[in-house]
């Protein structure tokens, strides 16, 4: 089977002044793969995600992306317009705080529609039906399509954010602590939802989290970060069951056993 490589990262490095953000990161991302990035607070996970999603431009390194149309491109040298276009349709970020990813002044349906309007979809009933479809898909009540995000609970807002991103059928989804700040039962439900959708639509994802339960449940491959560098990488099962690096060993052994 020939699986397509859609992202190739080489020696990605970012400094904040003299401070290391992340350093010498290398990995390949294949279509349909879910990559987890774990590490403690301040280990450079979020910096890495920001570099990958174009939010900041790294000090050094290379990111090659291969799009459905247009072949392999050097992501970092893309003009701002193309980066924005990517983020608005073919890629998507699910933020930890749903309020960063949603427009609170417009309804749930409007939020999903915005994503589709970015790709010039100008048919109202189509927008409406797609909105409802994705709300149901993420186990929300599609009758609430005209309500505003603020009338939803935190977990529902997160579901809405996920439907918004997935509605444009993106190639890569970046998730930054998608279940952070939610209580355990809601976390579990949302992870369940993500997992079943991912199986359905074969989306490629990069998930940043400090929660080992999340990576074990969702991801195929894992990068373990500490102090800005990747200390261990491999298949998720292998890394978690047979950790080689002392930090990974510490990490896996510090899960609370109740």
């Amino acid at each position: 089977m020939n699986i397509k490589k859609i992202m190739h990262v080489e020696n990605l490095t970012h400094f904040y002044g003299n401070q290391i953000g992340c350093k010498g990161i290398n990995f390949d991302l294949y279509k349909g793969e879910i990559l987890g990035i774990v590490g403690e607070s301040g280990s450079g996970k979020s910096t890495l995600l920001k570099c990958l999603s174009g939010e900041i431009s790294p000090s050094a390194g290379k990111i090659n992306i291969s799009l459905d149309q247009g072949g392999v491109k050097d992501f970092l040298s893309l003009p701002e317009q193309e980066k924005r276009q990517l983020m608005r349709s073919m890629w998507g970020i699910v933020h930890q705080n749903p309020r960063d990813g949603l427009n609170l002044r417009i309804s749930a349906g409007g939020n999903i529609a915005e994503r589709l309007l970015n790709v010039s979809e100008k048919n109202y009933s189509f927008l409406r039906n797609t909105g409802k479809y994705w709300m149901e898909k993420t186990e929300m009540d599609s009758d609430r399509i005209d309500e505003f995000p603020l009338s939803f609970s935190g977990g529902m807002q997160q579901r809405l954010q996920i439907s918004k991103i997935l509605s444009s059928n993106p190639q890569i989804v970046f998730m930054d602590e998608p279940t952070g700040g939610l209580d355990v039962s809601v976390q579990a439900k949302i992870l369940d939802t993500i997992k079943s959708i991912v199986r359905d639509i074969n989306v490629t994802m990069i998930i940043v989290t400090h929660d080992l339960a999340v990576v074990r449940f969702l991801t195929d491959k894992l990068l373990v970060m500490k102090d800005g560098i990747v200390v261990e990488t491999g298949l998720t099962d292998r890394v978690l069951d047979d950790p080689q690096h002392s930090y990974t060993q510490l990490l896996t052994s510090s899960i609370l056993q109740v």
């Binding site: 924005r84 276009q85 417009i106 309804s107 409007g110 994503r115 309007l117």
Partner: peptide, 22 residues
């Protein structure tokens, strides 16, 4: 200015969408 320069006009249609849905 960026929205004009890059012709990113989804917001305007979202406003029309909102009015039709309400």
């Amino acid at each position: 200015r960026k929205l004009h320069a890059y012709k990113e006009y989804a917001l305007m249609h979202v406003k029309l969408y909102e009015e039709i849905s309400q």
